[in-house]
Design a protein around this nucleic acid. Structure first.
Length: 203
DNA sequence: CCCTGATTCGC
DNA sequence: GCGAATCAGG
C-alpha cells in the first residue's frame, strides 16, 4: 500500500482527532503503526496539542563505540525536523498552583439524589464505600483540578465529573490521566476498586 | 505484558 | 519517502 492522497488525508484527520497510531494503522489497513508514525513525522505533524516540552538539549548517547571516535563524519546532522521554529517562550497561562478559590465549601460537594437531564455519568460511589485514603486523596486533588468543561476534555485529561451536571458548578477534573485510564491517578483510585476491598468494606 | 509515540537508518 | 527495528516510557 502506498500513501495516496486519500490515505494521507484520513491519516491527518484521525491523527488530529487524537487517534493513536495503531488505531489509524488498523483503519487504513496495509500499514503498521510504525508506518503511520513515520508518515506522521515526515508530514511534520508530530505534536498534536502536545504540551510536552521538547527537551532542549539532546544528550548524546553514552554508547561507547570502540572505533567510532575516529570516524571522519564531516557532516552536521541534517536532522532538524524542526525548521527555524521560533522558540515558544510559553508565557502561557501557566498553572498558578494556588487555586485561590474563595469558596469555602465543605470538602465533599453534596451528591444529588436526582438524576438530571442527561444519563448518569460514571457512578459516584457513595462516600462510605470508598476507602478513606482514596477519598482523602480525591478531596486533595480536586482542589487542584483543572475544572475543565466537556469541550475541553481530551484523551489525556481526567474525565471524572464533579458537581451536579444540571448546575453551572459542574466540571471535569481535567488533571493528567493515568496511562491508559480515563481518570487521573486519584480518581482511578475511587473508580476502580478491587472486588475484595468493596466486599470487605460492605460487611 | 499491554500499550503509546520517537528515532534511527538501510532500503 | 518509506517503515522495521529499536528506543523510551505509561
Amino acid at each position: 500500500m502506498s500513501w495516496t492522497d486519500e490515505r494521507v488525508e484520513l491519516l491527518k484527520k484521525m491523527w488530529s482527532d487524537g487517534q493513536s497510531a495503531s488505531q489509524i494503522a488498523k483503519e487504513l489497513g496495509g500499514v503498521t503503526r510504525n508506518a503511520v508514525i513515520g508518515k506522521v513525522h515526515r508530514l511534520g505533524l508530530s505534536n498534536r496539542t502536545n504540551g510536552a516540552p521538547v527537551p532542549p538539549a539532546k544528550t548524546e548517547e553514552v554508547k561507547e563505540k570502540p572505533a567510532a571516535a575516529a570516524a571522519p563524519k564531516a557532516e552536521a546532522k541534517p536532522r532538524p525536523a524542526t525548521p527555524p521554529k521560533a522558540e515558544t517562550p510559553r508565557p502561557a497561562p501557566a498553572q498558578p498552583a494556588p487555586q485561590a478559590a474563595p469558596e469555602t465549601k465543605s470538602a465533599v460537594p453534596a451528591r444529588r439524589q436526582i438524576i438530571p437531564a442527561g444519563q448518569p455519568l460514571p457512578p459516584q460511589p457513595s462516600a462510605n464505600e470508598i476507602s478513606p485514603e482514596a477519598l482523602a486523596k480525591v478531596n486533595e486533588i480536586e482542589k487542584r483540578a483543572k475544572r475543565l468543561s466537556l469541550m475541553e476534555l481530551t484523551e489525556r485529561t481526567c474525565k471524572w465529573p464533579v458537581g451536579d451536571p444540571a448546575t453551572p458548578d459542574f466540571w471535569f477534573c481535567g488533571l493528567p490521566v493515568q496511562a491508559g485510564k480515563p481518570y487521573c491517578d486519584a480518581h482511578v483510585g475511587v473508580a476502580f476498586q478491587p472486588m475484595s476491598a468493596r466486599r470487605d468494606r460492605k460487611r
